[in-house]
Design a binder for these strands. Structure first.
Lengths: 153, 153
DNA sequence: CCTTTGTCATTCGTATACAAACAAAAATTG
DNA sequence: CAATTTTTGTTTGTATACGAATGACAAAGG
């Protein structure tokens, strides 16, 4: 009764947040690939966190970079194969593997920091300075909501 | 000489757009998986576009849903294996495969539209109504920039 | 001390995602 | 019409991404 006709037809894919976020992300990935062909965003994020934190366990590193432990392992393996990170067992906890940058890893990271900053700039280029601040703010607020209740069942 | 000390150390991963967008997307994917366990976002996007457009060629469908043709093929194959879409050759163009929803596909889509709308609502829940509008607007503006030149080499 | 519970790294399976290379068919051009 | 270029679907290879299961080890409990 009183079925609103344009809501019945009204799921437009192109207006859904998820669809738009996926495309915004695609554009960012394209920019990243153009500016830093040597690394993927997750690989570079791993290098950056290791540069910041020193030696970290694999799971910890996954948490810091917002990656699943299974995903993290793959990233570490590929970086290790290229000689950019190394792992050694934690003497105080036999389960843990401490991951750290090698000399080559530190150099590779330093070589790409400037490009990484340019990537962020180019990604936000379509927005005005005030909008950029707001966009980042909105993103942070959305992420902060870990497991909220949702609006309505 | 006047080297700004906090810019020298100043690549903070947690402040980069790409890193934040990835996490926002992760949260959305988690919400999606909870509300619609039967489909992935890309699969549902495909069903939605087919419901809207009728019969479309595979490449065309990929463009409409912002997917690579290789990716699209995988999605179509999995949906076809479940009997939700069917394909037949285009009589007027022997290269093309026309993809369309089956009865089961139409029903599955209809069964999940309400949940899909709830997903968008829940994803945007941390924001105020005005902020939601603005967030979507900012996303659209970023996407619109296809292959801009970037700010500075 | 031993059992329960939790954490850590690993593996498997599934699903995007895209680059690159291909063959067949179409459209365009000379 | 013949030659070139495009488009279309497909396959292969690499890299996330995550759930689920597993075995090894750690911490807590009684």
């Amino acid at each position: 009764m009183a079925q609103p006709a344009d809501q019945a037809l009204g799921y437009r894919l192109d207006e859904q947040v998820g669809f738009l976020m996926r495309q915004a992300n695609q554009r960012h990935l394209a920019i990243f690939g153009r500016r830093i062909p040597d690394f993927t965003p997750t690989q570079f994020a791993t290098l950056a966190k290791l540069a910041e934190l020193g030696s970290v366990s694999q799971n910890d590193l996954g948490r810091q970079t917002a990656m699943d432990s299974a995903t993290m392992k793959g990233v570490i393996d590929r970086l290790a194969r290229r000689g950019l990170v190394s792992s050694r067992p934690d003497p105080s906890d036999m389960r843990r593997l401490l991951i750290g940058l090698t000399e080559a890893g530190r150099a590779a990271y330093a070589d790409h920091v400037a490009a990484a900053e340019a990537i962020s700039t180019e990604t936000l280029a379509p927005l005005s300075p005030e909008e950029r601040v707001q966009f980042l703010d909105l993103l942070r607020r959305m992420i902060a909501a870990r497991h909220s209740e949702g609006t309505n069942p």
